[in-house]
Write a protein that binds this DNA or RNA. Structure first.
Lengths: 111, 111
DNA sequence: CCCTTGCGCTTCGATTTTAGAAGCGCAAGG
DNA sequence: CCTTGCGCTTCTAAAATCGAAGCGCAAGGG
């Protein structure tokens, strides 16, 4: 399903192709951030059904689509034994999400 | 439309109520990050139709829903003269998104 | 006065995305 | 063999989003 957003190309919600807009399209799809999150915190490469279970039993059809997108985007990659893991780029993304995590705690305190 | 995610409550995609999950639900809805982005970069409070134009003419119905959610979440607020702006919490969120912006540039270079 | 223009939205049918259950081919074990 | 679990795919229903139309209002002209 070659529909993953790429920097330099028009994406859903923006025709400019600015990298940040491609990122927001990709990451804004449902479950995408969660899948990245679980891939990171599992600590070890993880299989399809296991990943699905960790993501609150998300739909397998959507998980399949998200994994394809993340692979196309160079964020996740299948290992040689039918498991998945983040690429170095994907790990960088998790790091970049750190401040967002901190913010969410502040948000929770203020509510 | 009282459907904005809140920390401490179950949200789409996670029953735990962990703040980060509520944040990912809220921010993962289509256009949400873009609206926040445009509210920030406008520099000044901004009206509904103007905001809509800046967001690649996104659907007014969805913009209306997103603004309600962001208001409920304490991220954006209407001013007294029918314009919108970010709250301090919303500005903190933009700051927290900074590393993500940097990452998207790295991503663009590697593709 | 009207008349137009633009505003902040709301409403509603059409389209796209996601949910969720079922199933396929395969491999491992009993 | 037979069951179990795997990585997915396929299908239909439900939900989210799109996008055009329109409502009530206020601010100008003419």
């Amino acid at each position: 399903m070659g529909t993953a957003p790429r920097p330099g190309r028009p994406v859903r919600g923006s025709a400019t192709g600015r990298p940040v807009m491609a990122a927001l399209d990709l990451l804004g799809r449902r479950w995408t951030l969660r899948v990245i999150w679980e891939l990171h915190w599992s600590g070890t490469p993880i299989g399809f059904r296991d990943l699905q279970r960790r993501c609150d039993a998300m739909s397998s059809s959507v998980l399949s689509a998200r994994l394809s997108e993340l692979r196309e985007a160079g964020i996740a990659t299948p290992t040689d034994d039918t498991t998945w893991r983040l690429t170095p780029l994907g790990e960088d993304l998790v790091t970049a999400m750190g401040p967002l995590l901190d913010w969410s705690r502040t948000w929770a305190e203020q509510r």
